[in-house]
Nucleic acid binder design. Sequence first.
DNA 1: TACCTGATTTGTACGCCGTACAAAGAACCG
DNA 2: CGGTTCTTTGTACGGCGTACAAATCAGGTA
Lengths: 236, 236
Amino acid sequence: MSESGRRRPRGPRRALTENEILDAALSLLDHGPDAASVRAIAARVGVAPNAIYTYFPDKAAVVNALVERLLGEVDHDVFADRAQPWRERVEALALELRAKLSAHPGAVSLMVGSRLDGSNAQALTERLLQVLADAGLDPTDAARASYLLIVYIFGSLVLEVADVQHKVPLPAESERIATRQLAFSARPPEHFPHSAAAAATMAGYISTEQYLWGLRRILEGLTARVAMERESVGSD
Amino acid sequence: MSESGRRRPRGPRRALTENEILDAALSLLDHGPDAASVRAIAARVGVAPNAIYTYFPDKAAVVNALVERLLGEVDHDVFADRAQPWRERVEALALELRAKLSAHPGAVSLMVGSRLDGSNAQALTERLLQVLADAGLDPTDAARASYLLIVYIFGSLVLEVADVQHKVPLPAESERIATRQLAFSARPPEHFPHSAAAAATMAGYISTEQYLWGLRRILEGLTARVAMERESVGSD
DNA sequence: TACCTGATTTGTACGCCGTACAAAGAACCG
DNA sequence: CGGTTCTTTGTACGGCGTACAAATCAGGTA
């Protein structure tokens, strides 16, 4: 074992672990995206603010590690089963990601500007490419499609947390819809006829139903292409 | 005229306009998303920091106004022409928005968490709904589709600015692709076979070409639905 | 004309933030 | 034991958004 090979370092044992710091940051984030300051995290784990810098080089590293950890919580088994229809696997992946990330709205705010290139992010991309390859997309289309899906998933999350704007805790979906309904009906209908007509639907934008609706339209667009290409190839 | 009806206020004439403040903020944003501090803006327009609060209640209002102003710069004529094919109108809208917003990467960072419910945002939504209605979507589908498109456009922008991470000025597209190419080839190919194979495509993710590719897949998904529904309605 | 009144601008200050730096403390080695 | 090395802390700097009271300015009114 190489792990027993490396001796314990010279100094005092560390009082914390990286994970305890991330735990603290994550729980603080439930009080708003700005609540996870270095000072607050340090206070939460009972240590001086600058002790954090023994574990992470700067705050951006804490954020990156936090995002990576959330991505690591995604259960791959749900959509790694190649016996399942590929569409359901993509939907399962999208729902898993949304569930794990929107559970921490503050963290979603933080991932904007995070690198998203950690090993867990790569693993998820790889899984997605796998599913799309199983769907019959050639490697180039699969790559493009995976980015399209990531944009959709990530964009939905960002718009969703922007909508609830660091209110805490996250209100229930039905309550959020009602709030938006009110906001829409306050608009001048004479200048925005389509918007007024679509108010009820638009109030329900931010919902799992709309999320899946959009996802399915995208999947249809991806496979329409495959179908077209298969047709054009013809008797091959 | 009601404008001549309101008399000039009592005090000294204002030294600035809201627009000058937004100009200053916008030019500062080109030096990074954090460069547009209230103090920096005030210094830029030659005024004490707290004078800004005579024009805007707080910094969030400045950001909202800035985003609204950028949305107002979008040229509606390009996609308001109902004689044009609706697909091209949607593409023109998407390209206009991307062009106007990604010209100010710092501002895109700021719009995350902005309300996006100003009159210009509403006008764009209305236009989008109009185009989708012209495409033959019923009001409900048009509403859902417009949100899907907004998520895509906005998500693409957010991921794009996250990729260049406040580097300034924005590097050329070819250079960004080369940088990403390097990053991808540094990954362990044995654990991520699909990712490795798709590296070249993925390096080119962030490009106008990929942006349009995804957009067209979405439009195909939306119209595949319309086509299906028309078929199922049958002889009607 | 001179004063009053109300809007604008400024000076100062508070409490945060991320984090650099040097000193102090703790565990291991010889 | 002393020395070495790592962790933790105290203190401090510069910057942030913004609250508050004083000063300044330009009307309207007497």
